[in-house]
Design a protein around this nucleic acid. Sequence first.
DNA 1: TTGCAAATAAGAACGATTATCATTTGCATA
DNA 2: TATGCAAATGATAATCGTTCTTATTTGCAA
Lengths: 141, 141
Amino acid sequence: MHRPEHLKNAGLKSTLPRLKVLDLFENGKERHLSAEDVYKQLLGSGEDVGLATVYRVLTQFERAGLLVRHHFEGGKSVFELNKGEHHDHILCLQCGHVEEFHDKAIEARQEKVAGELGFAIRDHSLQLYADCTRKKCPHKP
Amino acid sequence: MHRPEHLKNAGLKSTLPRLKVLDLFENGKERHLSAEDVYKQLLGSGEDVGLATVYRVLTQFERAGLLVRHHFEGGKSVFELNKGEHHDHILCLQCGHVEEFHDKAIEARQEKVAGELGFAIRDHSLQLYADCTRKKCPHKP
DNA sequence: TTGCAAATAAGAACGATTATCATTTGCATA
DNA sequence: TATGCAAATGATAATCGTTCTTATTTGCAA
Ligand SMILES: [Mn+2]
Ligand SMILES: [Mn+2]
Ligand SMILES: [Zn+2]
Ligand SMILES: [Zn+2]
């Protein structure tokens, strides 16, 4: 999917740490990763990156539009590949599972409400914290 | 409005720092305050409280249901008096002004979306980051 | 190849928050 | 009203996620 050229196009040198981080997001198991997640996974696969580099690269990728940053509860930033289209999240309070959704009606109402109050929305953040009932949930009720 | 009895009812001793903090939320200018806001305002009015106490009291009030905590962008928790009814927020990116709103349609759609995905919502967080056009905005375009 | 700006790794520094602990205080009881 | 003591406080250390600093390394254009 992504290749060294993509970094170039984003105005970023194609360096080993950057390629490794990008690869994690493209080919890794989980879609939503914190800086610590990325750092530990890289260490785990024998890669030798510094934590500071991980933070720097994540921020650069965000600025370049390759990644999107979220502020879920828990105090740490979470990143994911930028799919181009906006979506919101449901987070399972038991197992941590993250589900994505997009609801046109919600998005439209947000615009309406803001407009009526004299605001022009630039960005928004919506998270639903919930209990899931999916089969694989390790905390199934 | 609130009195020492309210603290008692919440299982909290009526102490000076607690009364001062509560008073700030009830009679202060601003409705949404961070721990630092509370601390500085108390210092400013000659009260001698420790920052650690402010943090402790805010958390206790939250647990007791007197305050509600929000995680707006910016990294610090923001608290407000618990009005009993849920609402969401619009935050002006220029002047920091915070507006409250409640939209039944949005709330209903959230339930619907979650239900269809096999989730039962326990809590949610919605913030609109926007540019405001109110008269008093010090950064009016 | 070489040169050099850009990127890195390690660790210090940072801001928000929590933990520790000796001292003080609210308040129930005598 | 005086006393006892658990609970609360305030100073400060510690923690956690993140950013900054700086000496060293690296990508890459010439
Ligand atoms: Mn997502
Ligand atoms: Mn509010
Ligand atoms: Zn949305
Ligand atoms: Zn809501």
